[in-house]
């Protein structure tokens, strides 16, 4: 049995940012998933959501809760990522001053996602947008 949820994200909307991740976290808790898994999903999703709000114009986040894994796919319309290697480096950020004032833009987003997921795939096109997919495996029960 799989559950799928879709969220629309708005670039620049910091007051709503994090709602999708919060929603999924509540759902995973209801489903009784182990807390270490919920924590990984919450962190990875939240960082990805903030990335869209901080850098892109808009985005769509799809979350698939499957028996053996949680799969998340985020596609945004935005400027794209100029240098993926730099973006994956801790401490490197292209965040605006406004984003930094929100407590983000420390350059930990993508590294945090990588650290909390079992696989991660990032594709980008300059002046078009970015597609990020990642998954967290659930141990078979």
């Amino acid at each position: 049995m799989s559950i799928s949820k879709i969220y629309h994200l708005e670039g620049g909307n910091f007051s709503e940012a994090g709602m999708a991740s919060s929603d999924i976290k509540k759902l995973l808790k209801k489903l009784g998933l182990p807390s270490n898994i919920i924590k990984k999903v919450a962190i990875a999703m939240y960082e990805a959501e903030i990335n869209v709000v901080a850098h892109a114009y808009s985005g769509i986040m799809e979350v698939m809760i499957k028996p053996d894994e949680i799969f998340v796919s985020i596609e945004d319309e935005g400027p794209g990522i100029k240098d993926i290697n730099m973006a994956m480096t801790e401490g490197f950020s292209t965040a605006s001053q406004k984003v930094r004032e929100m407590g983000f833009g420390a350059g930990m987003g993508l590294p945090n996602i990588k650290r909390n997921t079992d696989f991660m795939n990032l594709e980008t096109e300059i002046d078009k947008g970015t597609k990020l997919k990642f998954g967290i495996k659930l141990s078979g029960e």
Partner: peptide, 26 residues
């Protein structure tokens, strides 16, 4: 005030207090 640090370095949230000057919703 670095929210990503909270995400990266909190081991046991239930027994942790966050002390911050960042007074926004995030």
């Amino acid at each position: 005030e670095l929210m990503s640090d909270v995400l990266a370095f909190t081991n046991d949230g239930e027994s942790t207090a966050l002390i911050t000057a960042l007074s926004n919703a995030q």
